[in-house]
Amino acid sequence: MPDTTYIFGAVATMAIVTFALRAIPFAVLKPLRSSALVAYLGIYMPAGIMLILVMYSLKNVSVTGPSHGIPELVAVAVTAGIHLWRKNAVLSIVVGTALYVGMVNTVFA
């Protein structure tokens, strides 16, 4: 069994590292609030990330398959349309996903 001093040292080291990992983001956050780069990324990153996610989701869609990519195309169009109309990401994602799952399991089954 390890020595008591060793155990207390290990626990103290873990506590210090855990506290530091939790505190560092708050210490770094204040200078970043006034950064022009962070403001720029805050404006343009969400659209870029969504575009990357859509492209990744559609990379294996086969237009020569039985459904010819129709469920995917319709679901993406409906998701984009609802998002542009209501400006609600959760609503557009839920409706687009439900439409896709419904089409794949009923219309194109």
Rank of each mutant, 00 (worst) to 15 (best):
G65H: 04
H83V: 06
I49H: 03
I70A: 11
A80G: 10
L29Q: 15
R33N: 14
I16L: 09
K59L: 05
A80H: 06
K30A: 15
T18M: 05
A23L: 13
H68V: 13
T5H: 05
I24A: 14
I70S: 02
Y40R: 12
S92A: 11
T13K: 09
S34G: 07
I70Y: 03
F108R: 04
N105G: 07
A15L: 06
I7K: 08
A10Q: 04
T64M: 10
I7R: 10
A75Q: 02
V101D: 03
V74R: 08
M103K: 02
L41D: 08
M1H: 05
L99W: 01
Y56E: 13
Y6S: 14
L32N: 03
G96V: 08
I16G: 00
L37I: 14
A12P: 00
T5K: 10
A109Q: 04
A47G: 14
A10D: 03
I52H: 11
L91M: 14
A89P: 09
L41I: 09
K87F: 09
M14R: 03
G48W: 13
K87G: 04
S92H: 06
A12M: 06
A39Y: 10
S92W: 04
V76C: 07
F26L: 12
A36Q: 02
L37Y: 13
V90N: 15
T106M: 05
V107I: 11
L58C: 11
A89Q: 10
I70F: 12
A98M: 08
V63N: 10
G9V: 00
A27I: 05
M1A: 11
M1T: 05
A89V: 07
L53A: 15
L58G: 04
L58F: 15
V94I: 08
T79Q: 05
M55R: 05
G42Q: 03
A20K: 06
G69N: 03
R86I: 00
R22G: 13
V63Q: 08
W85R: 12
R86N: 02
I7L: 10
T97V: 11
L53V: 01
